[in-house]
Each structure stands twice: as C-alpha cells, then as structure tokens.
Write a protein that binds this DNA or RNA. Sequence first.
DNA 1: TGTTAGCACTCTAATGGGTCGAGTGCTAAC
DNA 2: GTTAGCACTCGACCCATTAGAGTGCTAACA
Lengths: 349, 349
Amino acid sequence: MELDDRKKKILLAIIKTYLETGEPVGSRTISKIEGLELSSATIRNEMADLVDMGYILQPHTSAGRIPSDKGYRFYVDQLMEEKEQQIEERERETDEMKGMLIEKADKMERLLKQVARSLSVNTNYAAMISAPQYHMNRLKFIQLSRMEEKRIVAVIVVEGNMIKNQIIDIDEPIDDETLLKLNMLLNTTLNGMAIEDINLSIITKMKQQAGDQAGIIAEVIDAVAESIKADEDLEIYTSGANNIFKYPELADNEKASEIITAFEEKKQLTNLVYETLSHSDEKGIQVYIGEESPVENMKDCSVVTATYELDEGIHGTIGIIGPKRMDYDKVLSTMKKLTTELDTMFKKN
Amino acid sequence: MELDDRKKKILLAIIKTYLETGEPVGSRTISKIEGLELSSATIRNEMADLVDMGYILQPHTSAGRIPSDKGYRFYVDQLMEEKEQQIEERERETDEMKGMLIEKADKMERLLKQVARSLSVNTNYAAMISAPQYHMNRLKFIQLSRMEEKRIVAVIVVEGNMIKNQIIDIDEPIDDETLLKLNMLLNTTLNGMAIEDINLSIITKMKQQAGDQAGIIAEVIDAVAESIKADEDLEIYTSGANNIFKYPELADNEKASEIITAFEEKKQLTNLVYETLSHSDEKGIQVYIGEESPVENMKDCSVVTATYELDEGIHGTIGIIGPKRMDYDKVLSTMKKLTTELDTMFKKN
DNA sequence: TGTTAGCACTCTAATGGGTCGAGTGCTAAC
DNA sequence: GTTAGCACTCGACCCATTAGAGTGCTAACA
C-alpha cells in the first residue's frame, strides 16, 4: 500500500492533534477539524490502512489512534524539510530570544550550566550539554614549575585554552637549570602537536635528547606524557531532569527511574554525545525517536541533539530529552537558534 | 504525661517493626513479638498515650500506628547513644567492609565520585559528597608563565594541593625580567597566607613594591587576586538518586520531582553542606528527620550527614538521603566507617 | 468505485454496593 | 493496673453496572 497525499494529510492531522492533547484521537475529531471535508467513516477506513502500514497504533479496539515511532519519524522528517526552507524567517526570530540566553559567563563551566538551564526552562524538557571535546586537539603550551623541593606542578594548555594540571612527585630534587631545559625541550617538541599523535617513539626521543634515560628527567617526562594522554571524563551538565514528571507517560516509577539514572550516571549521556558527534557532519540537528535512541534507558523518550562549534575542530553537543509526543517544532527551532547563537558567541571570544 | 520505661520499650518496638515492614503496626503485633508479655489491650492503652504525646501517628481510625518525626528523633537519639558505647566492636567490622571502598583513585574527583557511588550502592539510598572546602585555606605556590606574547597563565596552588588556573590577557607584552620579578613578589608576599586574609591593602602594597601603580603589573596583580578570591562553586557529587523510587512514600510524582530537583540544582545541597560544616564540631554525624531538614525539598525524607577531614582545616561533607523509615542503624555504621576510612586514607597521601 | 450513513459491537473508565479483615476504643470483670 | 470481650470504624478488594467514546462492517448512494 502506498502513502498517498490524502493519507499523509490525515496522518499529519492525527499526529498534530495528539501532540496537542496527548490523548488518542478518533476519526470524528479529524473529520471535523480538517480542511479535508471527509466523513468520519472515510477517515476510519484510511486510519485502518495507516495502522496496517505501521504509522499509527491502536491502544485497544475501541480507542482512538496514537502515532507510532514510524509515524513520529514521518512527522519529524516532514518538519525538518519545512525548516530548511524558512531560513530567512529565522533571522527575525533570533532577536526575540536573545533574552533567553546568557548574561555574561566568565567561565566556560558557568556558561555551559547556563545554557543547559536555559534550554530546559525554555522547552520544559530535560536538557544536557557537553563541554567541548578537545581530544583531537593541539598542545599549545607546557610549563613545569617547582612547587616544593621534590614536587613539580605541570601546566598543560591545549588549543581552545583549556588547562590541565598535574602535580608530580619526584624522588630527588631537581635543579633550576634542568627544569628550564626540560621546559624548553617539552615545548619545542610538543607544541603544536595533536594529542593523538603523541606516541611512545616521540617520548623516547625526548628522553634521548635530554641525555638522561633513567633519571628524574625521564620520570618527569613520563608523568607529563601520561597526564596529557589521560582521558578526561567528558564533562556533561544537565538541567531540568525533573521536567519528565510533567509527562505522565514518563512519570511512572520504572521509566522515571531509568531516565534519572541515565542523567546521573553521565556515562550513558557520554555515549549520546559520541553518537551525535560522529554524525554531526550530516546535518545540524538529529532526532532520535523511541527505539532509535542510542541510549538504552531512553527508549521511551525522544532525544533531540545538535552540535555546536567552539573553534575549528572543537565541538560539543547539546541535547533535549522529552516524551515522544514532544513539541518537535518548538524544540527544533530552539535548538537551531541556540547553536547559532553559541557559534557566533564563541567566534567573538 | 511522662515517657516511662514501659512506654519507651513499646515505642521502640513500634518503630523497629515499622522500619522493617513499612506498614502501620497494630497492638497485637507488638503484644506478640515483645519480651514485655502484655496483652494487646494494654498495649492499646499505652499506644493511645503515645499518640497523645506525639511520638506516633494514626493514619486513620482503624489502622495501626506509624512513628512521627518526634518518634524517629527519639529512636535515633537512643541509637546514637548505643553507638557511642561500642567503639571497640567497630574495629572488627572495619575490615569486613574494606572491599566496599575504593580501588585506586588517581584524582580527587574520581575518588569523590567513587565514594558517593559506594555509599549509595551500599545503603540503597541516595548519596552525596562535597569536595573539600579549602576556602579558609592557605596559599602555597603561585606561578605566572607567559603563554603567548600578550597572554599569561597563572597557576595557584592551595594547601591540600588544589590548583586553580587563570588565563590573563594583557594589553602589551611583558618581558621575562618583569615576569620573574612578579613571580617573586607574589610568592614572597602571599605564600602561607590564608585566602580570607588577602585584602585590598595587601594588594595595594604589592603594587607599590612592584613600583608600578598603573601599568601591566598592576593589571596582572589584580587579575591574580581576583582569581584567588573567586568563589568557586562548591563541587558536589551525587549518586543513586534513582534509589528514591524504591520507597513508595517518596516515589509519587510530586515528591520525587522535588528531591530530584534538589539533587540536580546542587544549590540546595550546598546549603546542606554548609549547615553540616557549621555544626561539625558538635558531633561526627548528624541526622535530620523530616521537617528538621535544612533543605526545603527534603521535608519528607531523612538526611544523614557527616564531615570528613582531608587535612588540617580542610573539611568535606558526605550525606545520605532516604525515606524517614530509613535503616538508621546501618546508615550510621556505614557513615562512621566511611568517614574514618576517608580520614586515614587522606592522612596517608 | 469511492464515499457515506447507520448500527451493532467493544472496550475503558467511572460509579456504587457489598464484603472482608485488621485494628481500634471502651466497658466490665479480674 | 491488667485483661477479655465486643461493637464499631475504615480502608482494600471485588464485582456488577453504566456511560461514552470509538470502532468495524454493511448497505446504500453518487
């Protein structure tokens, strides 16, 4: 069977009505509301077809219909196409929502928290944001300083001005000259290098150049290298998890517990971020409906994600988690505006 | 009316039974279980008295009784006294729960997360832990390095080896000599000082000593001072918030939402930490029952907190949030063990 | 051949009565 | 002061009934 024009119209009408009311919609409702001017009986026949084709579901025999995942998918794809075509309109809207953001964020962390908060407050869904991923990025600056006699602090700055610290305990004191030499060596060798490209052979080469294979210098170099390579946990900030209680279909104990767990053990969200980043070239915004979700605990939700760009090659992810009958229209707009705003904001800094 | 010995016994029996079953307990239950050997009728009379005195509640006329906040308070106080007296016994137990903790934590952050997790998993309640407060603490080391021509990175180490970073943009280049001088000045002036004691007059004095009231040096000194004084958000890690869904009395939408919100907007937990720290000299562990809770959103829970000591004057807080009918006995033991273990662990490092 | 009116049918949600059982409060006797 | 005994209360559960929304099917219509 084919999804002809009339079926499409009816399907969209069903979904829109359901998004508004949250209740199964019957044939009479559609027959009245539409510009289609068809009787409820006709609608019923078409609806039966749509059920067969898997776009809508019948909770039980004598109830109305609700959209299936496939139905939502159809709706969202439709919506995305429309969005594409009204870019000029967006310009205007961007101004309207300026107030939505972000007073003055001195620190990245605070900014991210604010963004998450603003997202959840504006949409009434749960929101998350990941700190930008600088993993693929280049070293910019390394500095070792002696803090105490047998203790060095290493400061490592990465492109994008993110800073790592590491305190290194050494077995015997190190003199100023050696420290200076070591600083020079580290900087000349490593600056400008991608973290990924730092490997054992480079480290060995450094040790050789330092002329000391076994002593303190090797020790320090190893510690620095380890600290550089150390996989930082991907920082993720969340906001508005409590919003899920506003939607009865998510608010029962079991589902709520699953979602809350996912939010708390950021690990699952981390997967979501990686998944999003790996697809980020395709399109700005991605929508995962129900079973499509890459996060096991969110199979009953819809998840909308987008990437923002802090700087060449430094990406982060924002996401919204809500019920499947989410106001996709609003969420997509909000996401699009927000990412654009973030992008321009970062370009300025 | 007075709480005589028999009433106490009955009250305790009621509370213990309720803690086990979670259901209102009737007079017959008590009359059977007890070593008191009283008939249910007698128990009933005593129970009526206990209701009058506010230690227990009657959900409705023909139901059993449940403890009131006042009742729980009585029970917990009782329990705390007992705990005091069995310190020697604890030695043995400490071994048993070694496995509970903590493999090898390279970073403070990871350690704290592990502790929180271990707490929530072991107790089946929600858990939180605050990073140690180093606010009242002393500066140990300051280092300015030039990163780019007009950009300096400041590294500030505080007692307890906690590190702050600050990138400072300056208007014009700074030469090596000045930077060195500045480093010396900052370290000689500020090292060993409590952060609290750094005030405007000290900063002004530094500027005078540097011999430059308006130029780059003043600029840098100001930036460093600001960074030192900047109030870091108190870091709080949580775990097992989803545990609240295991307790029906907390799992309805409204209450769950409140608790989850408190966990997510760490602000309320911050209050809890401050409250606990301000009382920490009284006693190791504190129990807040229902209305006693300093956190508005947790009026339906019980909250158990304790402080740990990382180093002289550096304290943190751990907390457990659960239903009022919490297994106080177990929670108190776990807390006590954990704080001791944390204390010794930090002493070692 | 597609559309529609009509009607029997299905299923849920809501309502109300009836029963059961746990537990109380009170009284009278020990 | 303690206890046995008993009437009473109240929620939990079960069941039958009803109302209403919505369907699916058939037969008639354009």
